[in-house]
Design a protein around this nucleic acid. Sequence first.
DNA 1: AATGGACTCTCCAAAAAGGAGAGTACTAAT
DNA 2: ATTAGTACTCTCCTTTTTGGAGAGTCCATT
Lengths: 221, 221
Amino acid sequence: MSLLNDRDFCFKRPSKGPRLTELKSSDDVQLLAKNGYYIALRVGFAFPLEEVNALPAAWVDHYTTHRFMLHDPVIRWIYANTGAIAWSGIDLPDPMRVLDQAQTFGLRYGVAVACFDGNREGQRSFGTFARSDREFERAEIDALHAYVVKLHHAKAPPTNLTKAELEALKMVKEGQRLKQIAHTLGVSEGAVKQRLKNAKTKLGAQTSAQAAAMVGEFGLI
Amino acid sequence: MSLLNDRDFCFKRPSKGPRLTELKSSDDVQLLAKNGYYIALRVGFAFPLEEVNALPAAWVDHYTTHRFMLHDPVIRWIYANTGAIAWSGIDLPDPMRVLDQAQTFGLRYGVAVACFDGNREGQRSFGTFARSDREFERAEIDALHAYVVKLHHAKAPPTNLTKAELEALKMVKEGQRLKQIAHTLGVSEGAVKQRLKNAKTKLGAQTSAQAAAMVGEFGLI
DNA sequence: AATGGACTCTCCAAAAAGGAGAGTACTAAT
DNA sequence: ATTAGTACTCTCCTTTTTGGAGAGTCCATT
């Protein structure tokens, strides 16, 4: 029996044979990228809004200590391209033999994915996924690509927050009480509450604490 | 190359000669790095906890669009070394002529700084600073180095938070109310309050919202 | 003149914060 | 083996902060 089943993956079975369609959660990804994966979301000038690092700790250690990033052909491909490709298809030099070393950590076969949605800030997202037993199939590569694109869009920062709302959230995040905030801004406490309420609605947050943390992570304040 | 040296831990200067006073704030840095600067704090596997980007918007745009990062000799130096150096002293190839292009954006003379404090996660911090009118002086380079080291230490994540405290903070950050948290954890609401109170004390936070945002930014939850 | 959006306010109920006190668990020193 | 110290956990009680409903103002657009 395949490790992939309906519950884990969401197959569709159209006319010809089983088809992998959509990865819903990190669990689904874990099943495909058995030996680890790494996703960086919304990389701007140099760094991302969020990263998911599910690579083996030993490899992360080795990679960090040797500062492989700038020499890693996978990273180089990701920075230079958009789309998805198997590691084996990347035609770039690997003078530090990063990929060979990766193999000794169980990262033998892999996929690199990069996407960009034409946003003004030039933010890009990318991921790399690995397994040791066999090469990834085309449908799997496409599914991983779609997954990263989905996360990329999900992490699009909200654009409808007003200046006043962001201002209030910033002050909440900095540990100020409503009374202080109101005083500093020269408005009523109720006004501050209303701003926070609007912000929470727009962000889908349950509490001001959550809303403040969210805008912080989006880099909006 | 030594990863660790005295200068990484404390900034002292011998008594003789004019001494550049310590850089206290980003304003001080702005005065020195007239044409812009960039600081990345606590870069782990690949990305930092925080970045300060005060480079000219046009350059950031150009740099991002052309994905210079992997080709930038300054970045390559920073990843490979510890200490501080004038751009002009970096002896690395620049096939994409990143530095030449930087000049056309007012970034003519510059300094690169990198530091590492021997922490377990291998986190490093670095910065690069630019001006167009003249080369940086040795004392200025040292002061900028000290500034980055200071920020690096300031961003050291607290290590004294208990599992219970982090757990509570995480749930606050996710928008849960104390009642919910208490129920989920199977403890009294008072217990949750106490955990949050301890966390706030340890973090020097005024409110739970602030504490939750802080641990989030430290990457502790 | 009407509509919609952002902002403001008040009042009341619900939630969170803060203080004091006390029990438990584990460590290090006597 | 006892003791002291430290860190963590919990309860109870009071005060302060917050959240939520409803309504009003101001302003730009239609």
